[in-house]
Design a protein around this nucleic acid. Structure first.
Length: 524
RNA sequence: GCCCCCAUCGUCUAGAGGCCUAGGACGUCGGGUUCUCAGCCCGAAAACCGGGGUUCGACUCCCCGUGGGGGUACCA
């Protein structure tokens, strides 16, 4: 038997990080067993613009490297994969259930059901519909309709016995049939409801393993009733715990961003991303610019491998120590048996540490291809970038080393690409390092040595500085920071000698001159 | 209300009765390397929700609480 699984996104316009985790587990399980993973679109609320709302979701999966074998954009032998195009299947199934006596036309008015339910609640007994308005014959239907009633189709659920579900993650779960309601499967207007649709689709798509969020565990009995009444085989079930908020056991929701931003780590990740988006001139819209949504990470320049590696460990582990997995290793080692039962809360700081790790591993050519577009989009370099710019970028990336955590961080080093007169200064650093007249004088003296230096490579520059501090009888700390601020505008950056060598003699000297002149102007 | 699921450091987790004076990772704190920052190295603090059982012995099994989540919709 070929394993077939599915993920069923609703076209909401964004890809939620928790949804990705569910899809990822489906995908890993399927790839592990050499099966097929498909995407089915839950667009039963007939909304407009399904394709537009779906695009970011499909794009997100593609970006993360979670590919599907059948579904939107892929086609497949079981299509269509959009629920809105499958309504006739559901109606046919509803008709069959009525014909076989597993469902019935119910003519109760909503308020009549509500009255029964309230009575049950008052008497503290479980509610079970009396089926008073159940049509048992064509005559009943005519009679009820003459009373001005309209019908929905309800499941005629068993009222005794126990259902045992053998869940791959939870183990055996038991339900009393008598606690299950006669759920509506078809509305008065003829449209069908989710549970029916889902069961019919899973059967039509030959889904063998239903791996989904635990919120569906309680829904499983009614789905099993439907599928067994229809004569369909029962798939294997696995109910995943949900992904919770940072530092809490409450389900993660994109609507609660404001609340999450009170968490220091979360806020840090968000602000870092926002600074990059702002530099790119993207007006960060609350709708998509949200660390709960995958799009955020792509915009800021995270690596898909980091996100996937982080997510696979959110509710799953191989053993007590393995942290890093290639895709292949993940696929080989994934099993539902090692999925946790308890919800796992989303920790952007830990994701960050995976990002750090994967970025360190990334070959420089790939970093270059990934980072150049950020400089182009921010307008720091022209598009397309010249070979000279590419070469300089390569050198900057090399020198920056582990300081580049996400691709957007390259914008921190924009000062290597802007003309001298556009260099911007960190005012606090400028103040601290250059205000003192003695410091400025020293910097001017160093500038003269720099302008006549015999060689301009890092080693030679270091020697030059060592000689300088020896002559001045000071420590390197007394001058080095002032130089950095003068030539980069910032108090932090990579090694000063690499910085100077990269900028070159002309730029280095010109920038020191400019800083000194600026200081002079401020002093007056 | 009723039904179902869940519960180990702040967080992700290991643990399937003695290997546990509870292991790893992120984060935090301290130290080292260093021109700043990042990185790297070393170290520390930090947990079995509570109460009953079962057992020679419970983080592990059972029961009851408590807390969290889900279902109980003509939502998905």
């Amino acid at each position: 038997m070929t394993v077939r699984t599915r993920f069923a996104p609703s076209p909401t316009g964004y890809l939620h990080i928790g949804g990705v985790r569910t899809a990822l587990f489906n995908w890993l399980f399927t790839r592990h067993h050499g099966g097929q993973f498909l995407l089915r679109i839950d667009d039963t609320d007939q909304q407009r613009n399904v394709d537009a709302a779906l695009a970011p979701i499909l794009h997100g999966f593609e970006w993360l490297g979670i590919d599907w074998d059948e579904g939107p954009g892929k086609g497949g032998p079981h299509g269509p994969y959009y629920q809105s195009q499958r309504l006739s299947h559901y109606q046919a199934a509803a008709d069959r259930l009525v014909a076989s006596g597993h469902a019935y036309h119910d003519y109760a008015r909503p308020e009549e059901i509500a009255t029964e339910r309230e009575a049950a609640e008052r008497e503290k007994r479980p509610f079970l519909y009396s089926r008073r308005w159940m049509a048992e014959s064509a005559n009943d239907r005519v009679r009820f309709e003459n009373e001005g009633r309209s019908a929905v189709v309800r499941l005629k659920m068993p009222r005794e016995g126990t259902l045992v579900i053998d869940d791959q993650i939870r183990g055996q779960v038991e339900f009393e049939w008598a606690r299950e309601q006669d759920h509506v499967i078809q509305r008065a207007d003829g449209t069908c409801l989710y549970h029916l649709a889902s069961v019919v689709d899973d059967h039509d798509f030959e889904i063998t393993h239903v791996i989904r969020a635990e919120e569906h565990l309680s829904n499983t009995p009614r789905q099993i009733f439907i599928l067994e009444s229809l004569g369909y085989p029962r798939p294997v079930y696995a109910h995943l715990p949900y992904v919770a908020e940072p530092g809490s056991k409450t389900k993660l929701s994109k609507r609660k961003l404001d609340k999450y931003l009170k968490n220091r780590d979360f806020a840090q990740i968000y602000e870092h991303g926002r600074a990059i988006a702002t530099a790119l001139g993207l007006a960060p819209a609350a709708d998509t610019f949200n660390p709960v949504i995958v799009d955020f990470y792509e915009q800021v320049g995270y690596l898909p491998d980091a996100i996937v590696n982080y997510l696979v460990l959110l509710g799953w582990s191989l053993d007590e120590r393995t942290e890093f997995f290639t895709r292949q290793q993940m696929i080989e080692s994934f099993s539902l048996g090692r999925v946790n039962k308890a919800p796992a809360s989303f920790d952007p700081k830990k994701l960050w540490s995976f990002q750090d790790h994967y970025m360190q591993q990334l070959p420089i050519d790939q970093k270059l291809d990934m980072m150049l577009p950020y400089l182009e989009r921010a307008g720091v370099v022209s598009t397309p970038a010249s070979d000279d710019v590419r070469e300089r970028l390569r050198q900057v990336i090399q020198a920056a080393g582990d300081r580049l955590k996400v691709a957007g961080d390259i914008l921190d080093f924009a000062d290597f690409f802007v003309p001298d007169e556009q260099l911007r200064y960190d005012e606090a650093a400028f103040e601290k390092q250059l205000r003192d007249p003695e410091s400025a004088a020293r910097l001017a003296r160093f500038r003269d040595r720099l302008s006549t230096a015999a060689a301009f490579d890092p080693a030679a520059l270091e020697q030059l500085l060592q000689a300088f501090v020896a002559d001045e009888q000071i420590g390197v700390g007394k001058i080095i920071h002032a130089i950095r601020v003068a030539v980069t505008g910032k108090a932090v950056g990579f090694g000063l000698f690499e910085t100077l060598a990269l900028l070159g003699r002309g730029t280095s000297v010109a920038r020191i001159d400019r800083a000194l002149a600026r200081r002079e102007a401020q002093a007056n």
